[in-house]
Nucleic acid binder design. Structure first.
Length: 356
DNA sequence: AATACGGGGAT
DNA sequence: ATCCCAGTATT
């Protein structure tokens, strides 16, 4: 049968070309889970070190469930999509509470865990338990769209359903783990988004997209994200050896990460405009000595759907006002212990570079 | 069905 | 600049 042939070719290619990665050396569902969450929308090279450090500190479900969320976030610092870390922590506690600390073994139960969706449940169940569920990630969309010359958009629900059924029909149920790994690795290394080397592709004789000269046009995606600007005015307030920090609690970017007290404005503002604002006046109400040590206009911070224009004002005070009580007051030398965004991390590095 | 959610590497 | 990466949750 043709379908089996494709599977065999992919698996043969995989055995010869696969990368040696730590999560491929285990069948521990916990370790596979951690790797899958880290690798969501994240390149292998970027996630590798995070995986090693994370699993060394949290080697099993119990260790993760017992930790404070703040510490989990610290281990996630810089990786992005921080809901993954929050969900990971929540799911570990879910496993302790609902499954007696044993990682669940059925598709339905695994899917009930926070942060695990259609892709990740298939990955965990096939890699750890060899259950016959096809993984459908960005790589699989691309490989299948090209192989079968399908221009159905991969954004919508129809496309997702179609490609999932197609992947499932191709899956070798005797070795779903190998098939899924092979399909994704093939997409990551051979059937790459730009300028794939179709000349040396083991499937070039079967690739309908190649025959139709549409490989570069596939897969089809519809919408592109609109990037909206935001203006962040950070106040690095310190005195008496203490620094003010704030925890982002809103349903917004960087939730549960720390930062300096922030005044967000509708547009770029000068120091004069900022210091004239009511929120600013109230914050420094009653402080005798307020000294602006430095103004730092950081380069714009680009996220997938936001671009942030940050300005940092270093402000030295001789005392802290009443209204600053809503912030954390931490010793200067312990600021580094708090999980922060890349933006804050970058500023901290600049500040340290200017200290001497 | 759209949108929000990070950060970095490749082209 | 643009694309996109072993996606999920919310609206």
């Amino acid at each position: 049968m043709e379908d089996r042939e494709i599977s065999d070719i992919l698996i043969r290619w995989y055995e010869e070309n696969k990368r040696d990665l730590p999560w491929r050396r285990t069948s521990d569902p916990y370790l596979i889970w951690i790797s899958e969450i880290i690798l969501q929308q994240t390149r292998v090279v970027q996630g590798l070190e995070y995986f090693n450090r994370f699993t060394e500190r949290f080697p099993n479900v119990a260790a993760l469930a017992m930790a404070d969320e703040d510490e989990v976030m610290k281990y996630w610092q810089g990786l992005g999509y921080y809901s993954r870390a929050r969900n990971l922590h929540a799911a570990a506690r879910q496993i302790m509470n609902d499954f007696d600390g044993v990682f669940p073994r059925t598709r339905e139960e695994v899917l009930s865990l926070r942060g695990i969706g259609d892709y990740t449940v298939a990955a965990i169940c096939s890699f750890a338990y060899r259950l016959p569920y096809a993984t459908v990630d960005g790589n699989v969309f691309r490989v299948l769209a090209r192989l079968f010359d399908i221009d159905l958009s991969i954004d919508g629900g129809e496309g997702k359903k179609y490609f999932t059924a197609l992947a499932q029909s191709l899956l070798d149920e005797r070795r779903p783990d190998l098939f899924n790994q092979a399909m994704m690795e093939f997409g990551a290394l051979q059937c790459v988004p730009k300028s794939p080397d179709c000349e040396c592709c083991p499937l070039n004789g079967k690739c309908l997209g190649l025959a139709a000269r549409r490989v570069e046009r596939l897969p089809v995606k519809s919408g592109k994200t609109v990037v909206k600007p935001r203006y962040f005015n950070y106040l690095y307030i310190h005195g008496q050896g203490m620094t003010l920090l704030s925890k982002r609690m809103e349903n917004d970017i960087w939730r549960n990460l720390y930062e300096f007290p922030l005044i967000e404005t509708e547009c770029a503002v000068t120091w004069g405009e900022l210091s004239g604002m009511a929120v600013f006046q109230e914050l420094f109400d009653g402080i005798e000595k307020v000294e602006i040590t430095r103004e730092y206009v950081a380069k714009k911070h680009v996220l997938s759907h936001r671009v942030i224009y940050p300005v940092f004002y270093e402000i030295r005070v001789d005392s802290f006002s009443e209204s600053m009580g809503k912030y954390l007051k931490v010793p200067d030398n312990r600021v580094g212990e708090y999980a922060v965004s890349r933006l804050i991390q970058s500023y901290l590095e600049v500040r340290d570079g200017l200290l001497f």
